[in-house]
Write a protein that binds this DNA or RNA. Structure first.
Lengths: 224, 224
DNA sequence: ACAAGTCTGTTGTTTTTACAACGGAAAAGA
DNA sequence: TCTTTTCCGTTGTAAAAACAACAGACTTGT
C-alpha cells in the first residue's frame, strides 16, 4: 500500500496533502488494495457497492452492454482518477454499468462514509480531502455533460468533430493521441465502427484531419 | 426568503435539518433570491459562475443550442432540485450550457465555498448538509448516466423504450406523466420530433403503449 | 368570441446509418 | 518463425432517421 502513496499524492483527491498525512489517512479511511488482470470486471451491472475507488495503475472502462450485445462506453478511467463515488449514497441502488479493466489494473478502495463524515481521529487534512472530493465529482459531472454534447449531435461526422475538437482543446494542441481504438471510440460515441471509420477517412480525404492509429491532427480550414 | 424555508426543508440538501436551523444557515451560507419569468435565461453558455442554486419554484431546462440551432436538453430541473454545483470548483471554467426557465421560477443562490469549507460559526447541521450535498451530486451523476444510456440506443424506438421504461420504474407504475412535450422529449433524446412522433404512434398501433398528451401507459406484452 | 400562435400527427423525399461481409496489415502468442 | 488473432478500412445493401411541409386540434391572449 505504501508503494502507492506517491501516486495518490498526485491525484485530485489528495491534492495539497503531504505523503505522511496520506499514509495516516489510509488507515483512517480503511483503504484496501485490489488488482485486476486485463479483461476482468471490477464491477458488474446489478451489483451493489458502497465503496469508492481510485485507480492507482491501469485503465478502466465504465460501460454498458445491452441485451442485443451493443456496447456503450460511458466513460474512461485513467490512473489517478476515482470512480464509484456515484453509488456512495445509501439508497443509490444497484450499479447500472459494468466496470472493465482494459489494462492490468490496481485499485484502492475507500470507505466512503469515512470521508464525508467527520473523521473521529480528526486528521488535519480531512476537510481538504472533502473539498477535493467535491471538486472531483463536479469534474466528473462535467465530463459526462461533455459526452452528452458529443452524443447529441445528429450525424457521425458532427459527433467526431465535436469529440476531436474537445480533445484538441484539452491537449492545447491540434495534434494529440486519443485513449481509444476505433471500436472503442465508436462505442463511446454510440455509432457503428465501420461507418465511423468510413467517415474518418472521408474527413481525411477532404483535408480536415490526418491520423495514424490513435494519433490525430486537425487542420483548421475555417469550416469547423 | 423565510417563505421558502418549508420548501427548502423538503429538499435533498436540507434533508434532516429543522426549519429553525435552515433559517440560521441561510445567513451562514449567504443565500440570495432571484426570480425569472418563463423564457428567461438563468445562465448562458460561456458565462462564469461560482454559486450553486436551488430551484424553489418553477421548472428549468439545462440545454445546449449548437451553431445550426439544434437544441439538446441535457437535463431538467424540478422544484426542490439543485443545479450549478458542477461549476463550483475554482478552475471549472465557463458554463457549457444554457439554463432556461420553462416556467416562472424562483431560485435561491448559495455561496458554494461556505458549504464545503467548515462553517466559521459552526452551525450544528453543517456536516449533515455537506453529506446531503454529496449525495445529491451523486444522484445527479446517476441521472446523467441514465440519460446517456437512453441516448446510446441505436434507434428512436429503442431510445423511447429505454426512457419510458425508466419513467415507469421511477413512478412504480405503468401509467405516468412525463415532464416534456413532444419537442422537448425529442430534444432530450436527441432525435427528430416528427420521426419520434411517428414512432410513438406506430408503437401505439402495435399495442405497446397508449398516450394522451404527456400521459403514457405501457402495456407489458413481454416484448420489452 | 375571435384571432394568432402552439402543439401534434402525417406523409413523402433525401440523407445517413447500421449491418454484414471481406481482405490486408499489424500485433500477439506459441 | 509461423500461426493466430486483432485491428482497420472498404464496399454494397437494407433500414432508419432527418428534413420539410402541411393540416387539424388545442391554447392563449385580446
Amino acid at each position: 500500500m505504501k508503494k502507492y502513496i506517491p501516486i495518490l499524492k498526485r491525484t485530485r483527491l489528495f491534492s495539497g496533502v503531504g505523503e505522511e498525512e496520506i499514509g495516516a489517512m489510509l488507515n483512517c479511511l480503511q483503504a484496501r488494495l485490489c488488482t485486476y488482470k486485463k479483461g476482468e470486471y471490477v464491477l458488474r451491472q446489478g451489483e451493489h457497492t458502497d465503496t469508492f475507488m481510485i485507480l492507482a495503475e491501469g485503465k478502466l472502462h465504465i460501460q454498458c452492454d445491452d441485451y442485443w450485445g451493443n456496447r456503450s462506453i460511458i466513460n474512461m478511467v485513467s490512473a489517478g482518477e476515482m470512480f464509484g463515488e456515484a453509488y456512495a449514497a445509501p439508497e443509490s441502488g444497484a450499479v447500472m454499468n459494468d466496470v472493465l479493466a482494459v489494462e492490468d489494473s490496481v485499485i484502492i478502495l475507500f470507505d466512503v462514509k469515512r470521508i464525508i463524515t467527520v473523521c473521529p481521529s480528526a486528521c488535519r487534512f480531512h476537510s481538504a480531502v472533502v473539498q477535493n472530493m467535491f471538486y472531483a465529482i463536479s469534474e466528473k459531472n462535467r465530463s459526462l455533460v461533455q459526452k452528452i454534447t458529443f452524443m447529441s449531435k445528429r450525424t457521425t461526422r458532427e459527433k467526431l468533430i465535436a469529440y476531436l475538437s474537445e480533445e484538441a482543446k484539452r491537449h492545447n494542441s491540434s495534434e494529440f493521441s486519443i485513449p481509444f481504438n476505433r471500436q472503442q471510440l465508436a462505442d463511446y460515441l454510440s455509432v457503428d465502427r465501420s461507418a465511423m471509420s468510413n467517415e474518418l477517412c472521408k474527413m481525411r480525404d477532404e483535408g480536415m484531419i490526418t491520423f495514424e492509429k490513435n494519433r490525430f491532427v486537425l487542420y483548421d480550414d475555417g469550416t469547423i
